[in-house]
Structures are given as structure tokens and as C-alpha cells.
Computed example of a mutant assay.
Amino acid sequence: MNTYGKQFRITTFGESHGAGIGVVIDGCPAGLHLDLDFIQHELDRRKPGQSKITTQRKEKDEFQILSGIFEGKTTGTPLTLMIWNEDAKSKDYAHIAEQFRPSHADYTYQQKYGVRDYRGGGRSSARETAARVASGAIAKLLLQPLGVQIYAYVSQVGKLKLEKAYQELDLSLTEDNIVRCPDQAVAQQMIALIDETRKKGDSIGGIVTGVIKGVPVGWGEPVFDKLHAELGKAMLSINAVKGFEYGSGFEGVQLYGSQHNDAFYTEEGKIKTRTNHSGGIQGGISNGADIYFNVAFKPVATLMRDQESINTKGEAVTVSGKGRHDPCVVPRAVPIVESMSALVLADFYLRNKASRMND
């Protein structure tokens, strides 16, 4: 399935070493002004070659809008955005044409389809997420007038963890360093750890924390399409993601119900909760409090060292690491997590309009 969303729908297409990556957005309301500079800025945050701790593939990731816009505004018809590939080096992958790289999608794609594009992973490459960020930028533009604010930042690399809660941080500082951690002292330690890992030819995982402010009460569906379930699905669809938790998450099991319940109170005519273990979602529906969650990313599967594996004939082989790869994906995953959050919320915003008669 290459499509996500019910009302605000995206369909991504393209491969890592094909002509390019693109997305078709269907259901975006007419009359939305598209800030092209903002869309490009979001893509620049995700693009490769940003720093010494990311892949050195050089892609400008400049986008073209092929349809759905007139005089700077959306027309209500499908929006098509295209990002052309410019720096694909397919020869770097010729040696694994008949080999299955450990923990990659090579084997499963081969078994499912009977054929696979081995050049950079083809469709399974994280390059596909450029299309998500482009469409996520448009979703952000749709949400901005509503006061919805979406943040993400790196809160852990390997065993190195940022111990402060998001309320203690100035999230505006996230972009002030190459690892995208808003605590500058911890950020420097993370950068050093990733760089050390890179020099060893190894990789390391981490956690991206998401924070969403300003979501009105009532977004989400009560049974299968719970807001947190859709956020979880969206995050788990991102390459290398191994876990998702929201609100108190797994730590919440250590509390008694009397400690975990979020008591209601009224302040200036508004209903609020004294705590927020629920993570801004109750019964699958937003309650107006901050939505916060963690997304766990595994270490990158491609290593710049030899690994044991097998080939398509089942014979033992040694897979050599070549090409250009991130030693840790979390710095570039920050805008992807934000974009997937925006896509989920834009969809629920439009769906919510049909959930009740106007007051």
C-alpha cells in the first residue's frame, strides 16, 4: 500500500536510484496558499549531505509542483510534487545484486515480488521519505491557521539519553546543532558518539520525541482509527522504526491508577487536566492537552565493514559495506516524524468536519 489517509490522502512513488521521488496529494482543500519557500525549507531539513554525521550523498531535493496549483493556491484537484534524483551511484550496489544484506528488506522483497531493485534498496530506501516531508509540509500549512504546532527532537542516541522532559526544554533550539537536540551540552555528546561510531564503520540507533501543541478537543475516531493508533501506524511506517509509545507509555505500568489518572479542572472557562499521563488523547480522541510520544529507531543496517550472509542461491557470502549511508538516522528523522504527525492531523481535521452537525 503506497497510500496513506482517508480525507487528506497521499500516494508516494519512486525509488532511491530511479528518476526521482514524488507524491500525489488528494483531498487537500482548494484555496490553500502554498508557501513554496517553507516546503523547500522542510525538504532541506531532511536532505542528505547535511553534515559529517549524515550520509554524504548530495541531493538538492528541489521540488516541482506538476498539478493542483493555480496562482499560488490549491485548486482542490490532486497535487503532484516531484523531486528528481541527481546523485545516485548505482554501481556502489552492484556487488549485492545477488546477496541479501543483513536486516535489510532484500530477502523479504525478493520473496514477495520475485524481483527487487537492489540499487540503494529501491522502494524500501529511506529516500522515499522525501515525498512524505514534501506532503507533510503542505499538511503543516493547512494546520497552521488552527494554531497546531508540531515539534520533534532527538532525545536519545545509543545509551546517551536526554533526561529532561520536553516541558523543560526550549524546543526552538532544536535546529541549532546538527544532531537536532535542543539541549546543547547533550547535543555535543551525541555528535561525538555518532562521529565515533561512523569512524568505526558501525551504526547506532536512537529516539526521536514528538510534541504536538494546540490540537483542538475532538480529533480522532473512537474504535479502530484512534488518534494514537494512527500516529503509531504513521511512525511505524517510517524506515528503521522499531517502537512507538505515547503519553506515559511503558513507564506508566509502574503507577497505580490513583497516580496515573488525569484529574479534570476548570480554568478560565476551559476544561483542563492537572496531569497529562494520557498524552493528550483519551478514548482515541484528542482532549486539548499536549500530545507527546517517542519513536525508536534501530541502528542503520548497512555497515562499513564485512558481514556474514547468504546469496540468492542460499550460499554463504560476505557482504561488504559500500556506498553512502547515515551512521545514525535520528538527526534526519526529525522532520520525517513531524511530517507524518502533520499528515495524520490534517486527515483527522478534515474528517472531523463531518462528525457532527454545525452548532
Rank of each mutant, 00 (worst) to 15 (best):
M1S: 12
N2Q: 09
R9P: 09
I10W: 12
I21W: 12
C28M: 11
P48R: 09
T54G: 04
K58T: 07
F63I: 02
G68A: 01
G68L: 03
G76Q: 05
M82S: 03
D92G: 04
H95E: 08
H104P: 07
H104T: 13
D106K: 05
T108K: 13
K112Y: 10
R123L: 15
A126M: 07
A131K: 13
A139I: 03
I150D: 09
V157E: 13
K164A: 15
Q167A: 08
E168Q: 14
E168T: 07
L171R: 05
T174K: 01
E175L: 05
Q184F: 08
A185F: 07
A192C: 05
A192N: 10
K200P: 01
S203N: 01
T209W: 02
V211W: 03
F224N: 08
L227P: 13
F244E: 06
G247M: 00
S248I: 03
S258F: 03
Q259H: 13
A263V: 10
K270T: 12
T273H: 08
H277V: 01
G288Y: 01
G288L: 02
P299N: 06
V300L: 11
M304L: 12
D306G: 07
N311V: 04
A316I: 13
V319N: 05
K322C: 05
K322V: 00
G323D: 09
P327M: 09
V334Q: 05
Y349A: 14
Y349G: 03
K353A: 14
A354V: 15
N358C: 15
